[in-house]
């Protein structure tokens, strides 16, 4: 069950990666990278169950936080040209 779910989400990531490569504007690319990050959170949680290592949940939690901060910081940089 967890294997199948992880494979489905990896295939979905491939679709999003196509948009990240093609994307006409920079915002499309940032949105695609944000979606890839959220899929990574789910894959990390599922890997914790596939290999029976519960500590992967900590990695998923931290990756969710970093993904949000990274997206907002990147948008701010694109918007203003600086980060302060």
């Amino acid at each position: 069950m967890f294997n199948t779910a992880a494979i489905i989400i990896i295939l979905a990531s491939a679709i999003v990666l196509f948009r990240a490569i093609k994307g006409p504007t920079v915002f499309d690319r940032i949105l695609s990278v944000n979606l890839l990050g959220t899929k990574t959170v789910v894959i990390l949680a599922l890997i914790g169950y596939i290999f029976e290592r519960p500590h992967f949940m900590d990695l998923a939690l931290v990756y969710a936080l970093i993904n949000f901060i990274g997206t907002v910081a990147l948008l701010r940089y694109v918007d203003k040209g600086r980060l302060d």
Binding site: A5, I8, L11, A12, S13, I15, R19, L35
Partner: peptide, 11 residues
């Protein structure tokens, strides 16, 4: 998984 695939196809 279905909703995530729908989100990817929508994007």
């Amino acid at each position: 998984c279905f909703f995530i695939v729908i989100a990817s196809i929508g994007v």
